[in-house]
Every structure is written in C-alpha cells, then in structure tokens.
Design a protein around this nucleic acid. Structure first.
Length: 479
RNA sequence: GGCGCGUUCGUCUAGCGGUUAGGACACGGCCCUCUCAAGGCUGAAACACGGGUUCGAUUCCCGUACGCGCUACCA
C-alpha cells in the first residue's frame, strides 16, 4: 500500500450526541491516517430522515474538535470529493442503483414494510429464520412494469447469490468468510428514494477513494454484503479493519442506561479531553510495554492496526478517573486555575485575584479527580467563620492547645514573611517554646483555622487565609 | 434459532512453544507526614473447559461452554 495515498473516513450519523465508541473510532481512524501521512475525511451519514436531529452534525464536529480530532476533508472545510453529507448525494446513489438494476444485479421490490414485518413475525412464530422470501426477485418484467405504471412505491434490493461464500481478510481479525445463503437480499434504495447505509457507504467510499475502512465490530457481518457490492460494481474494495466493541460493566454493548456514553457528558463533568482520549485509545489497543500516558501526538506515533485487540473492552470509569487525575495534576497552575474557576465561583469563591485563585487551586489539586471536586474542598477558603463540633471543641480547649494558641499569637504578629514555609518554621519554634509537638501541636491550630481535622499543608493554609484571619480565628479559641 | 466474532487477575492489558505469567486501575498493608490527599514500596488476584500436535503448551489445531454482535425500507 502506498502510504502517501491512505484515505480514511469517520462516518457518523447525526442522531444526537457523540458516543464514546464513536470517539474511539474517529480517533483510531485519525491516528492511523495521520501516522502514515494520509488523509482523514468526515462524512455525515444522514440517510435516515426519521432519526435526523437538527444541529447534531455541528455538535459532532465541535465535540470531536474539543477532543483534538479534526479532519482534512468534510462538510465544513470541503474537499475534492464532496459533498460530504449523504443527503446531498442522493442522485449518485440512485444512479448506481439504476445501474445495478440495468445489469440484473438488483431488482425492484414492491413489498411494503407492513407485509415484511408480518412475514417476519410469522417466521419467528414458526421458529423459522426470519429472512426475506425474495418473492419480488421472481417477478416478471411485465409484472414489474405494471406495478411501476400503477405508481406502486418500491425499494431496490441487491441480488445476493444463492450459493457460494464471500471471503475476505480483516486487518484486525484475519480471514473471515460468510455464506451467501444466510445473507438477505439487502435493500439498497428505500422507497423514499434515500439509500440504505449499505449502498451509500460503498458508493461513497469508492468515490471518495477511501483506502481503509476502520469501523466498529457491529459492521463485521454486513461487510460481506459490502464486498459483494464492490464486486457488482467492478470496483476494488478498500481494506477493512473492525474494531472491538466498547462494553458496559456487564459486558453488553456500551449503552445509555448503564452510565454516560456521550462524550458531551464527560466534557460537562469536567473530564479533560487529553484524559478521555488517552483512556479511550487504550481500550482495544496498546503499544506494548508498560507506558500508559500518551499525548495525542505520541499516540499517533505509536498507533498501528496490528496491535488492535479482538475482544471487547469494558469502559471502566474508575480508570478514566485515574487518567483524569494524572492529567489534572500535570497541569501548570495557571491552566489548573483556569479549568477550576467556574466551579470555584459556583461554590462562592471570589476568583478576581488571579494569583490567589491559582494558589488555592494548586493547594487543593491533590484532592481532585475532576475539577468540579474542588467545590467540596473550597469551603476551607470561603467560610466566613469556623464552627467546631463537640469533639473539636474539646481538642482546642485542652491546656496544651491553649498554650500553643497563646504562643502562636505572640509570634504570628511579627512573623515575616507570612509565607507557607516560614510559617511552618515558626510553628516549629512554638514546638520548642511550649514543648507541645506533633499532632497535639498541629491539630488544634488546624481546627482553629479551618474547623476541620484534615486538609492541605497547614503552612500553606495559613498563608492563603492571611495573617489577620488566622490570628483572629485562633484568638477566638482562647478561653 | 441461524450466522459471525471473541475468551490471560474484578477491570484495561503484556505475552507471539520453555517466563517465579509482567504492568496499570480498583482493593489491602507499610513508608512518608500534623492530618487527609498525593507519592513511594509491597500484598492478594488470571491463562474458561476438554481433546489433540509437540520433548514441552497461556501461546498452534479441533471441539464444548460461555459472552457479545448481526440477523430493519437504523446506522
């Protein structure tokens, strides 16, 4: 294969949100193509008018871009193979259906959806395989002409051979073969004039000169039909690579109802795109070795279809959370603050002071899995006054605690500078002065300052709270 | 039901005939530390089953079981 000419496509249908499985498919396509200097194409498959959702395509593109995935050709940027929206290519599909019809490789079917559904029900009831009985395949030319003249709505079905089998090599799964006798005469053109996925994807992939079709495993069984279509048209088929499915914890195909499946859901929850992408990249593929943290660029460098696994992978949110924690922690203070800001403000923290905002976000960073987690810790810096529960009051009332408080106020007044490290050193001198140390030294101070037994480094807290507040809060605990 | 595909710790996975079966998440312990979190170290935890092939199978082949997918005028 000529690496220069690799062309892949991501072909979602605009039915709403971007599924995380779709994100991974788009990602793998992109990694594969970009890693080989190829071209990525985005094609919108909107041939099912009943499922069309307004604005979904734009949302898909925007969400993909958020994740760092962009395309070389597509509805927004155009390209030499457009249009890139299938509903704008219906003439092309019709033309190709006509061609098959003319060559006797397809036929018009006048069965209605109702008839077909009833037939299917009957077959199931009789415990027979529900397959189309091909009655319209036997229609004579005269009968077809008569029905056409009568204006009967109809579909176009492909004539699948009655015997034989289709064999092909999948880049992920190796040799696959499917017997024709289990393949229905697939509808190619619906009665509303729109093509089905099967016709449209083959026609488009050919005309858009797609070299590699990388898609989910749910397409594996119908790949035989697609290959047959290429044969009927006399075209060279692209290479196929079918990706293992993403699974729910119970190992069924990843779906709503068992958690979030929309990339948008993770985005609004505050997951970082780098974390989601890194996580999803490793679901079904890995570069070998022990490394797990990869940037998009590194993934591109490492990715290969040969290392894509065959078995489905459970989407484990705890692992995703770990990735997010890693990326969050690696963020520089400015970036961290920027990301946490909305939640800090929501929790009542004034973010006007940028430096202070950064310092607070940094101080709390080791507690965060998601930026939104900051809301449960920021009370430390938003509360006006400290209230203590019974147990805490007892601790601060202890003679040793009182001794520490007294001394603290004395030295804190003149402590310079009022900085985390220096404040800790100052506390150490209080240890010397009072003889109180360890937990008995720090815990009362922490309680007096924050009202809580646990939290970030005490020196840092004292610095961020400010000398006045600290002294005032400690003075208040002196009996 | 039919067809297709799959099966290494609970989960993501490494392994491509000979390994004490490795790593990561989660879980337990220890260390660090004023505490919690983070971090470091460490522990428990897997080759679905049965036949072959082979001197030797987690690895190759065949069955079985189980799982998933497809079986639409949806993609």
């Amino acid at each position: 294969m000529n690496a220069e000419n690799i062309r892949v496509r991501f072909a979602p249908s605009p039915t709403g949100y971007l599924h995380v499985g779709g994100l991974r498919t788009a990602l793998y396509n992109s990694l594969f193509a970009r890693g080989h200097g190829g071209t990525t194409v985005l094609r919108i498959e909107d041939t099912d008018r009943s499922r069309y959702v307004e604005g979904a395509a734009e949302n898909l593109i925007e969400t993909l871009a958020w994740a760092g995935i962009t395309f070389d050709e597509g509805p927004e940027q155009g390209g030499d193979f457009g249009p890139y929206v299938q509903s704008e290519r219906t003439a092309l599909y019709r033309e190709h259906a006509e061609r098959l019809l003319a060559e006797g490789k397809a036929y018009r079917c006048f069965c209605t959806s109702e008839e077909l559904a009833a037939s299917r029900e009957r077959q199931v009831a009789e415990k027979k395989d529900p397959t189309y009985d091909r009655r319209c395949r036997m229609l004579s030319e005269e009968e077809v002409a008569a029905k056409m003249k009568a204006g009967m709505p109809h579909t176009v079905r492909m004539k699948v051979p009655l015997v034989g089998q289709m064999q092909f090599r999948d880049l992920v799964r190796g040799d696959i073969s499917v017997h024709y006798d289990v393949i229905d005469d697939q509808v190619l053109l619906k009665s509303d004039g729109y093509p089905t996925y099967h016709l449209a994807n083959v026609v488009d992939d050919h005309h858009m000169e797609i070299t590699h079709v990388i898609r989910g495993e749910e397409w594996l069984p119908s790949t035989a039909k697609h290959r047959l279509l290429y044969e009927m048209f006399g075209w060279d088929p692209p290479q196929f690579a079918h990706l293992p499915l993403l699974l729910n914890p119970d190992r069924s195909k990843l779906s709503k109802r068992q958690g979030d499946v929309a990339v948008e859901d993770y985005r609004t929850k505050g997951y970082l795109p780098e974390a989601l992408v890194n996580f999803v990249a490793l679901l079904g593929w890995n570069p070998g070795g022990d490394r797990e943290l990869f940037t998009l660029e590194e993934l591109q460098e490492e990715f290969s279809l040969e290392r894509v696994g065959k078995a489905g992978a459970v989407f484990d949110i705890e692992k995703l959370q770990w990735f997010n924690t890693q990326y969050l922690r690696a963020l520089p203070p400015e970036k961290l603050a920027e990301i946490c800001e909305p939640w800090m403000r929501e929790a009542g923290f004034d973010t006007i002071d940028r430096e202070r905002t950064q310092a607070v976000a940094t101080a709390l960073s080791s507690y965060l899995t998601l930026p939104s987690d900051i809301t449960t810790h920021i009370e430390l810096f938003t509360q006006d006054a400290v209230t203590l529960d019974e147990e805490s009051r007892e601790i601060t009332a202890a003679p040793e605690s009182q001794q520490v408080f007294q001394r603290f106020i004395e030295v804190a007044e003149t402590q310079e500078p009022w900085k985390g490290e220096e404040i800790k050193t100052m506390v150490k001198t209080i240890q010397k002065d009072t003889g109180v140390k360890g937990k008995k030294l720090f815990m009362p101070l922490r309680l007096a300052m924050t009202g809580q037994q646990h939290g970030p480094d005490l020196g840092m807290i004292a610095e961020l709270l400010g000398r006045e507040t600290v002294i005032e809060r400690i003075r208040r605990r002196i009996l």
